[in-house]
């Protein structure tokens, strides 16, 4: 029964996408715009296939993910540490919370000039932009997640003999997990967007640069193909990794 419903939903979606493709094809056939401004779906598909066949896309993805792993990894580590630090020292928290919020809402493009002056047009400039784009979001998420742990869990844990690190590991962290995960998901999307922007900076290889190259070559089908790849990766990670994880946790915690 449930399987049937899911099948129905998928069929509906497929039909919808098919209609969109058809509309696109019709628009192209009407020849309102020249092919180099609006290539046909078939042409984009061919570019997509070619890109995967000659490994440019795969190499781009790998280069991008290496940066992401380093940058987001540093963000998680330092951002969480800063968040915990703010939790411990309330005075600093009160003094800095406005600044951190401001830095978190700063669009990542604003970090470019600074990144280039400090790191030139290097690998580290891009990684720096990823870090700057996501670290403060992690900090905020960490500190709110721990602040919002219901005191009754801590009270119950202490009453049963949990203290210090044990209390942290067995009670406080598990209690904070759902909200930490939401923060991680959001920070990931900041990191991912910063990465794409950062890779447009210069001849950096990576996915963002493939987009840039498409523009340089005036190759619209290349631009569209790379955009599709980027969107597919965004959806896969957000929906299928974070989304599934969140659903599992929500089910378990009864949220």
């Amino acid at each position: 029964m449930a399987c049937n419903l899911i099948n129905k939903k998928i069929t509906k979606q497929l039909i919808l996408y098919f209609i969109l493709l058809a509309l696109w094809q019709i628009l192209v056939s009407l020849k309102i715009w020249p092919q180099y401004l609006l290539p046909s779906p078939a042409k984009v598909c061919a570019t997509l296939a070619e890109g995967f066949k000659n490994h440019t896309f795969l190499i781009g993805i790998m280069i991008s993910f290496k940066r992401l792993l380093i940058g987001f990894g540093i963000s998680i580590f330092c951002g969480a540490a800063l968040g915990v630090f703010l939790l411990k020292y309330k005075i600093i928290d009160e003094a800095l919370s406005g600044l951190i919020l401001g830095l978190q809402t700063l669009p990542s493009i604003c970090w470019f000039p600074l990144a280039i002056i400090w790191f030139n047009l290097s690998e580290w400039a891009i990684i720096f932009v990823i870090i700057a784009g996501s670290l403060f979001s992690i900090t905020m998420a960490t500190s709110t997640a721990f602040k919002n742990v219901p005191p009754i869990y801590i009270k119950a844990g202490r009453n049963m003999g949990a203290r210090g690190v044990t209390l942290l590991r067995k009670v406080i962290i598990p209690a904070a997990i759902p909200s930490l995960l939401i923060g991680l998901r959001q920070s990931w999307s900041f990191a991912w967007r910063s990465l794409m922007a950062g890779e447009l900076l210069f001849n950096s290889l990576g996915l963002g640069y493939l987009l840039y190259m498409g523009r340089e070559l005036n190759d619209m089908s290349m631009v569209l193909a790379v955009m599709l790849v980027i969107a597919a990766i965004s959806i896969t990670i957000d929906r299928w990794i974070f989304g599934e994880l969140e659903a599992k946790i929500r089910l378990k915690y009864g949220l």
Partner: peptide, 18 residues
């Protein structure tokens, strides 16, 4: 201090949902 010789049971349960 608090120890397991005197245990609390709360209105809001305080059971661990995880």
């Amino acid at each position: 201090g608090s120890d397991a010789h005197r245990l609390l049971i709360f209105q809001e349960m305080g059971l661990f949902p995880w």
